[in-house]
């Protein structure tokens, strides 16, 4: 159903600053602006001079060989690591002095490459942790079960069920998160991230370990989430089918540096990218 929609390319436009964003996001302030972002680990430049501007509802991909620094960039954006150079603006706010929690409140949610669910808690409770900062009450209300406790808990329950319905997981609400099959755990991580009411969703290898059919479904779901929540998505992925299928802009990293940027078509035909992925062609005779 979404097959045609995916094929239909978004028109990308260039800002005066050189940033490229989808045409429909023109006139709205970008959700994420990184400029000259970099981090060094004891002299090793893990990420260097990383620039990225994301439109309000853009789906962008971050690709590159293993060890290129993709997850490091996610950790920089969410303040798990403190950048040694450059700045990150989320929705226009400088993240310089923010903590991981502040970034979450500012509207950035993420999933993890190696699934990090709350394994001993129920599926619903996992989502409710995501709602933690949206629907809350004080400790006194919680312990003494004041009326507000019940109304807030009900709100949380309804919201959690609504979110779980995105992936048709409402009937699994009482299951233990750790006992879910792998694919369902990946989906639950996305639901939990969505529960934090983000403006920008960071997906770290969402299709890892999925079969082609599940990946197709995931692609439709990512598009659907973007359309219904009107959020931007930045994803790291090795599955080129997914990246080329739904990403509007792609950024290729190698050894911590951006080696190419552009639309899927531009990236596919870029010699530098091909070299990074497949190695240098030997000159004849050498």
């Amino acid at each position: 159903m979404n097959e045609d929609k995916r094929r239909q390319r978004t028109k990308m436009v260039t800002y005066p600053s050189g940033a490229v964003i989808p045409e429909r996001d023109l006139g709205k302030s970008p959700v994420l602006e990184c400029s000259h972002l970099g981090i060094e680990f004891g002299g090793l430049k893990a990420v260097e001079d990383f620039n990225l501007v994301l439109g309000r509802t853009e789906i962008a991909g971050l690709i590159g060989p293993n060890g290129a620094g993709k997850t490091t960039i996610f950790n920089l954006l969410t303040k798990v690591y403190q950048p040694t150079h450059g700045s990150v603006l989320i929705d226009g706010l400088d993240t310089q002095s923010m903590t991981v929690v502040d970034v979450s409140k500012a509207g950035v949610a993420r999933t993890f490459q190696n699934i990090r669910l709350f394994g001993n808690m129920s599926v619903e409770d996992n989502v409710r942790i995501g709602l933690h900062n949206q629907i809350k009450y004080d400790m006194f209300t919680g312990i003494f079960r004041l009326p507000r406790y019940f109304s807030r808990e009900k709100q949380q329950h309804e919201k959690a069920m609504e979110l779980l319905d995105i992936f048709n997981m409402a009937d699994l609400a009482d299951a233990k998160a750790g006992s879910l099959p792998y694919g369902a755990q990946r989906r639950l991580e996305i639901v939990r991230a969505l529960a934090t009411n983000p403006k920008l969703l960071l997906l770290d290898e969402p299709a890892a370990g999925m079969n082609p059919h599940e990946t197709e479904e995931l692609m439709d779901n990512i598009l659907r989430i973007r359309d219904s929540f009107q959020i931007a998505v930045l994803l790291i992925e090795h599955d080129m089918n997914l990246v080329m299928g739904i990403c509007e802009g792609i950024c290729v990293l190698n050894f911590g540096r951006v080696i190419a940027k552009g639309t899927p078509e531009e990236i596919q035909s870029n010699p530098v990218v091909i070299e990074a992925y497949l190695g240098k062609k030997k000159e004849a005779g050498q």
Binding site: T78, V80, V100, V101, S104, K105, A109, R110, F112, R116, L117, F118, G119, N120, M121, D125, R128, I129, G130, H132, N133, K136, Y137, M139, G142, I143, Y149, R152, E153, Q156, R192, A193, A195, T196
Partner: peptide, 22 residues
């Protein structure tokens, strides 16, 4: 209550709990 849930999330995975805004 919600506080107990937050405690349990810290027990299960500190990194994820923090990323979710706990």
């Amino acid at each position: 209550s919600g506080y107990g849930r937050a405690f349990k999330s810290i027990r299960d995975d500190e990194v994820a709990a923090e990323a979710m805004g706990v």
